[in-house]
Design a protein around this nucleic acid. Structure first.
Length: 1012
RNA sequence: GGGCGGUUAGCUCAGCGGUAGAGCACUACAUUGACAUUGUAGGGGUCACAGGUUCGAUCCCUGUACCGCCCACCA
C-alpha cells in the first residue's frame, strides 16, 4: 500500500542512485536507432547551482528523457568549464580570506595553478551533485572538463585546444598584434568586448583651453544656420571638452572636422597641452579628421590614441603618436626617463624634427613627475585642479556676472569589467586575436540557410546583428588559470653567410606549435641552431649573454652579433586563452576530437540535436561554437538552438546574490521536491519571455504531485494498478472507459507535439489538465459506482482501464516529474506482475485513432454537463450540499433517456439526486433548468428562495439573449454570409438554433417558477 | 542612436482572425468514505490608446504612449 503521500526528501536520492547504478543514463548504443544528443552548457567547475541552471537543465532533461523514451540513442553530455577569471578570482579571494599570508604572487605561477587544481578537485563535484538532485539524466561517466583531466600536454582536451589554435594560426586566422584592448586593471588582463559592461554613470565634462603655440591668435567666428555671424572674437586658444582630463597628458593632436570653418585658420598649427610643468609644455598639432562632429561641444577633439577607441582610429589614420600613460594596474606610469627629457623628445616629434616608431613611443612616459604613480582617478582630479588654477579652464558667467569654470554634470557611458566591476581602461598591448570576421561568414550562412535554426526564431536577428558586425576577438588573457597559449617567443635573428647569427631582440620571433617538441623543430630549422626552452626572459637573457654562447662583441643593447650559440632559448607565451576559446569547441572536444579513436562518438553524437541556453550567452558561446564548429568540423555543431528565458524574481528583477533576491533552487528542492521545481520551470518556460519565479507556484505543483499520488493510491486500493500488457480500446464496453482512453490519447498527442516544438509550457499544461481536471475530477469519480458495483465484467474492464491509464499518465508525466512517477511505477508494481524495468526506459506512448470514440465522448460530456448544471443550480439556490434532491428529466430524447439509464446512478451520486428518471410532465414544485434538449426538474421549490431562482434564470436568459441577438445580427449581415467561410456560417446558424431552443425552454422555466 | 520584446482578471502569465483562458489570490459552501498539499460553486476583463485592413480584430498593418532588455565611439 502506498504511503499517505510522496516524500521527495526520502525518495529522490535513492531513486536517482538506482537509475545511475543501472546505467540508465548511458546511450542505448543502438546504432540503428536515430541518435539524439545535447551537450550541457558547462557550468563553472567551482560554481553552485542557481535558478538559471535549474531552468536550463530541467528543459534539457525533459528533452533528453522524452527522446530516450521514444527509443533514440540518446546522449546528454555533461561537464564543467574551467571559467578562467571566475575561478582564479575565487581561489585568490579564498587565500585572502584565509588569513594566511599567501597570495597569487607569493605562490608563483606553478604553485598557484596547483592550488586551483586542488580547489577544482575539492569543489568540482558540488555542482554535479546538485544537477543530480535536480534529476538530470546526464551520462556522468563521460563528464568532461574544458581543461581536461590535469591540463597536461597529452590530455585530449588540451590537444584539441592547441590544435585549434595552431591550425587557425597557420591559416592566418589567429595573429598577434599591438592593439588597443579593454584592460581590466583589477585582474590585470585584457578582456574581450563582451566582458565589458557599459553603464551610464554620473560624470563631468570639463572644458579647457589649449593655447596656440607662441601666443598666436586667430579670429574665431560662429554662425547660425542662416550664415549670420553670432560670435566673433580674437582667440589665442582652441577649446576642448573632455570627460577624462587625465588622458590629456597623452594627447598626440587636436582634431577638427575638415569642413569646420571656425578652425580652418589654425589647422596645421601647434597648440599647447595646458598641463604639466610650465617650462616643458608639450605642443601638439591641430589636424583634420572626419571623426569630430562640428555640432558637438566645441567641435574640436583631443586625440589620445593610447586611451580611447575612437582616438585610436584617428591616430592611426593621421600617424599620430599614441602615448601610453598607465601601467597594468591603471595607475599613472612611473617608469622611464624623467618627464622633462621625454617631453622634449615628444616636442621634437610633434614638430616633425624627429622620427618615431612604435617601440620608441611605447617607451616614452609622458606623465609629469608629480603625477607619476598616482591612481588614474586621483590624477584626473589633480589635472583639473592644476589647469583651473592656471586659468586655462573655459569660464562661464552666471546671472550676476561671476565667472566659474565650465563643468557640465552629465551622464556618461563608462565601461566596467563584468567580473571585477572596476572601470575598464583602453590599453595598448600585444595580444592574440582571432579573425572573427572570416569565421563568422559561414556561421551566418548556416543560420540563413536553416542548417541551424533558432527557436524562437526572432533570436536569429540578434545573432545576425552581432555576427555581421563582429570585431577581432582578443583571446589572450594575462591570467594563470587556463589553457596556456601554445606559442613560443625566440630572438629575432639574421643568419649570416658564415653561419653565425646576428640577434636583435629577445623575443621578436614567434613559433606556434602544439607542443614544445614541434616548436623546437620549427625553430631550429629557422635558426639553424638547436633550441631549448627557457622559463623566462631572464633566463633567455642569461643564455644569450653567457660566455659559452656569446662569442661575439655586444655592439649595443639588444644586439648580439656573430653569435654561434649551442642552443637558442625560447620562452613560452605566459598568457592563457579566453575561457570561451575552449568552450567554443565543446560540442566536438567532448566527443574525443581530435583523436581518431574518438570518432565513433563524434560520428554518432555530432552535430548535436539541439543546444539549450539562455539568450545572454548567444554571443559568448553559441556564436563561438558555430564559428569554431563549422571551421573545424565542416558542419554546424547543432541543428536547433533553443533559447529560453532568464529566471527573474517575483518583481521581475534579475536574481543575484548581491541584491539578495536570489532563490536557491536547492532550498526549493528540499522544501517541495525536485519534481515540483522542475514542473514549475517547464510550466513557466513560455517562449521568449522571462520567468518570474514565486514559491507559491512551486508549492502548487508540489500539490499537483500529491494529487497524482493520491489518485494512484485510490487506484491501488481498488485493485486497478498494474495490469499487464497493452490495452485494446476496441474491446471496451463502458462509455466512461471508452471516453477516458480517448481523452488520454488527445493529451498524449498534444504533449508530444508540444515537446517536439519546444513548447514546454504547453506540454506541461496538457498533462496537468488531463491528470487533475479530467482523470481525477471526473474519471475517478465516475467509475466509483462501477468499482463498487455488481457487474463483474464491467468492474474488471474498469480496473484494467483505470490502471492502464494511470500507467500511461506516469509515462507522459515522467520527463517533467521523473521522481514521483518512477516511485509510483515501482510501488504500484509491487502488488502485481513485475514491471518491465524502470519507468524512465519505457516507450513513450503513442495512440492510434481507435482510442478516440466520439459517441462515448459525447455521452460523457452530456453526463458531465448534467452534473455540473445540477451542482450550479444547487449552489446558487443555497440547497444544502449534503441533501438529496428528488429530480427528473422532462421530455428527454431517446438518446438521452438511454444515457440516463446507463449513468443515472453515478449522476445521482455526483449531483446528490434521488429518484432520477425520465418523465413527460414537469412535476409539481419543481425548479427547472435546461440540459441539452431536455428540462431538468429539481423538486426544491419548497426549500429555496423562489426569488433567487428567478434571478438566476433571468440572468441566464439575459446572457443568452445577448448572444442570440449578436448571432442574429451577424447572420443578417449579407457580407458575412457571402464572404465568411461556409463552416463558420454553418456553425453560427447551429449556435443560433441551439440558443433559441434553449432560450425558449429557459423562458418556460421562468414562467413556471412565477406560478409557484 | 539602432534592434528586440512587452502592455489581456487583484497578481503572474497563456492564447490569437469568428463564443476571452489558466494558476494563485478573493467570496460562499462542504470534512468518516484516494486526496484539506482537498472538493463544489461563484465574482472579476472596453484584451494600453488611436487609426487602417477585413463580412468580422484582443489577434494582422500603421502610428502614439508608457515599461523592459540587448547593442552602439559622441569627445
Amino acid at each position: 500500500m502506498l504511503d499517505q503521500r510522496f516524500d521527495p526528501a526520502a525518495s529522490e536520492a535513492q531513486i536517482y542512485q538506482r537509475w545511475e547504478e543501472a546505467d540508465c543514463f548511458k546511450p542505448s548504443g543502438d546504432t540503428s536507432a536515430e541518435a539524439y544528443s545535447i551537450v550541457i552548457p558547462p557550468p563553472n567547475v567551482t560554481g553552485v547551482l542557481h535558478m538559471g541552471h535549474a531552468l536550463n537543465n530541467t528543459l534539457q532533461d525533459i528533452l533528453i528523457r522524452y527522446h530516450r523514451m521514444t527509443g533514440k540513442n540518446v546522449l546528454w553530455q555533461p561537464g564543467t568549464d574551467h571559467a578562467g577569471i571566475a575561478t582564479q578570482m575565487v581561489v585568490e579571494r579564498q587565500m585572502a580570506e584565509s588569513g594566511s599570508n599567501e597570495s597569487r604572487a607569493s605562490l608563483g605561477r606553478e604553485a598557484f595553478v596547483e592550488r586551483v587544481w586542488e580547489w577544482k578537485e575539492e569543489s568540482g563535484g558540488q555542482i554535479i551533485g546538485q544537477l543530480k538532485r535536480l534529476g538530470a539524466s546526464c551520462d556522468w561517466s563521460r563528464t568532461a572538463f574544458t581543461m581536461g583531466e590535469d591540463g597536461s600536454d597529452d590530455d585530449q582536451m588540451v590537444r584539441a585546444v592547441r590544435k585549434v589554435f595552431v591550425d587557425l594560426y597557420n591559416e592566418g586566422l589567429i595573429y598577434r598584434a599591438k592593439r588597443l584592448v579593454n584592460w581590466d586593471p583589477h585582474f590585470q588582463t585584457a578582456i574581450s568586448d563582451l566582458e565589458v559592461e557599459n553603464k551610464e554613470v554620473a560624470g563631468h565634462m570639463w572644458h579647457f583651453k589649449y593655447p596656440l603655440a607662441g601666443g598666436a591668435t586667430y579670429t574665431y567666428v560662429e554662425k547660425d544656420e542662416d550664415g549670420n555671424v553670432t560670435l566673433e572674437e580674437e582667440r589665442d586658444y582652441i577649446s576642448i571638452a573632455t570627460t577624462r582630463p587625465e588622458t590629456m597628458l597623452g594627447d598626440g593632436a587636436v582634431a577638427v572636422h575638415p569642413s569646420d570653418e571656425r578652425y580652418a585658420p589654425i589647422v596645421g598649427q601647434l597648440c599647447e597641452i595646458p598641463v604639466g610643468p610650465k617650462e616643458h609644455r608639450r605642443l601638439i598639432p591641430i589636424i583634420t579628421d572626419e571623426y569630430p562632429d562640428p555640432d558637438f561641444g566645441s567641435g574640436a577633439v583631443k586625440i589620445t590614441g593610447a586611451h580611447d577607441f575612437n582616438d585610436y582610429q584617428v591616430a592611426k589614420r593621421g600617424n599620430i603618436p599614441m602615448y601610453a600613460l598607465m601601467d597594468e594596474r591603471g595607475t599613472m606610469r612611473s617608469d622611464g626617463a624623467p618627464y622633462a627629457e621625454v617631453a622634449e623628445t615628444a616636442g621634437r616629434i610633434a614638430r616633425g624634427q624627429e622620427s618615431f616608431d612604435e617601440a620608441k613611443i611605447t617607451a616614452m612616459n609622458l606623465v609629469p613627475d608629480e603625477y607619476r604613480g598616482l591612481d588614474r582617478f586621483e590624477a584626473r582630479q589633480r589635472v583639473v585642479t592644476d589647469i583651473t588654477a592656471e586659468g586655462l579652464a573655459v569660464m562661464v558667467a552666471d546671472a550676476e556676472g561671476t565667472e566659474t569654470p565650465l563643468v557640465e554634470n552629465k551622464k556618461v557611458m563608462q565601461p566596467f569589467g563584468d567580473r571585477s566591476g572596476v572601470v575598464i581602461e583602453p590599453m595598448l598591448t600585444d595580444q592574440w586575436f582571432v579573425d572573427a570576421e572570416t569565421l563568422a561568414k559561414p556561421a551566418i550562412e548556416a543560420v540563413k540557410t536553416g542548417k541551424t535554426r533558432f527557436v524562437p526564431e526572432n533570436w536569429e536577428k540578434t545573432y545576425f546583428n552581432w555576427m555581421e558586425n563582429i570585431q577581432p576577438w582578443c583571446v589572450s588573457r594575462q591570467l594563470w588559470w587556463g589553457h596556456r597559449i601554445p606559442a613560443w617567443f625566440g630572438p629575432t635573428a639574421d643568419k649570416k653567410e658564415n653561419g653565425a647569427l646576428d640577434v636583435y631582440d629577445y623575443q621578436g620571433q614567434i613559433f606556434v606549435g602544439e607542443s614544445f617538441e614541434k616548436v623546437k623543430q620549427l625553430a631550429s630549422n629557422y635558426y639553424g641552431y638547436p633550441v631549448s626552452e627557457a622559463e623566462s626572459i631572464t633566463e633567455l637573457q642569461q643564455a644569450l649573454f653567457s660566455e659559452e654562447n656569446n662569442t661575439s662583441e655586444v655592439q649595443a643593447e639588444f644586439k648580439f652579433l656573430d653569435l654561434r650559440p649551442k642552443s637558442i632559448p625560447l620562452v613560452q607565451d605566459p598568457d592563457v586563452l579566453d575561457t570561451w576559446f575552449s568552450s567554443g569547441l565543446w560540442p566536438f572536444s567532448t566527443q574525443g576530437w581530435p583523436d581518431a579513436d574518438g570518432n565513433e562518438d563524434l560520428k554518432t553524437f555530432f552535430p548535436g540535436s539541439v543546444l539549450v541556453t539562455a539568450f545572454d550567452i548567444i554571443f559568448f558561446w553559441v556564436a563561438r561554437m558555430m564559428m569554431q564548429g563549422i571551421h573545424f568540423m565542416g558542419e554546424v555543431p547543432f541543428k536547433d538552438v533553443y533559447i529560453h528565458a532568464l529566471v527573474l524574481d517575483e518583481k521581475g528583477q534579475k536574481m543575484s546574490k548581491s541584491k539578495g533576491n536570489a532563490i536557491d533552487p536547492l532550498e526549493l528542492i528540499d522544501e517541495y521536491g525536485a519534481d515540483a521545481l522542475r514542473f514549475t520551470m517547464a510550466a513557466m518556460a513560455a517562449q521568449g519571455r522571462n520567468v518570474r519565479l514565486s514559491k507559491q507556484r512551486v508549492e502548487g505543483y508540489r500539490n499537483f504531485s500529491t494529487k497524482l499520488w493520491n489518485a494512484a493510491r485510490f487506484c491501488q486500493m481498488n485493485e486497478c494498478a498494474n495490469w499487464e500488457g497493452a490495452l485494446d480500446p476496441t474491446t471496451l464496453t463502458q462509455p466512461v472507459n471508452q471516453w477516458i482512453v480517448g481523452e488520454l490519447a488527445k493529451t498524449g498527442a498534444e504533449a508530444t507535439t508540444a515537446i517536439e516544438e519546444y513548447r514546454f509550457d504547453g506540454a506541461a499544461g496538457a498533462v496537468y489538465r488531463f491528470i487533475w481536471n479530467i482523470f481525477c475530477d471526473w474519471y475517478l469519480e465516475l467509475i466509483k459506482p462501477l468499482l463498487n458495483g455488481e457487474d463483474e465484467e464491467a468492474k474488471v474492464e474498469t480496473r484494467r482501464t483505470a490502471g492502464w491509464v494511470l500507467d500511461e499518465i506516469l509515462k507522459l508525466l515522467h520527463p517533467f516529474m521523473p521522481f514521483v512517477t518512477e516511485a509510483l511505477w515501482e510501488q504500484l508494481g509491487e502488488d502485481g506482475p513485475k514491471r518491465d524495468g524502470f519507468l524512465m526506459l519505457q516507450a513513450w506512448p503513442t495512440y492510434d485513432e481507435a482510442f478516440e470514440n466520439a459517441t462515448a465522448a459525447e455521452e460523457m460530456d452530456w453526463v458531465i454537463d448534467l452534473v455540473t448544471e445540477v451542482r450550479s443550480v444547487r449552489a446558487d439556490l443555497g440547497v444544502s450540499p449534503g441533501s438529496k434532491v428528488p429530480a427528473s428529466l422532462v421530455n428527454a430524447s431517446e438518446t438521452n433517456t438511454a444515457r440516463l439509464e446507463r449513468h443515472g446512478e453515478v449522476i445521482s451520486r455526483l449531483a446528490r439526486l434521488e429518484g432520477l428518471g425520465v418523465v413527460e410532465e414537469t412535476p409539481e414544485g419543481a425548479v427547472t433548468t435546461v440540459v441539452d434538449e431536455a428540462l431538468l426538474a429539481l423538486k426544491i421549490a419548497d426549500i429555496i428562495d423562489i426569488g433567487e431562482a428567478k434571478a438566476r434564470l433571468t440572468k441566464e436568459i439575459a446572457g443568452l439573449e445577448k448572444d442570440v441577438t449578436g448571432i442574429e445580427k451577424k447572420l443578417g449581415n449579407e457580407n458575412f454570409v457571402s464572404r465568411a467561410p461556409a463552416d463558420v456560417v454553418e456553425e453560427n446558424r447551429q449556435r443560433l438554433a441551439d440558443g433559441k431552443v434553449r432560450l425558449e425552454k429557459l423562458k418556460g422555466a421562468l414562467a413556471r417558477l412565477a406560478q409557484l
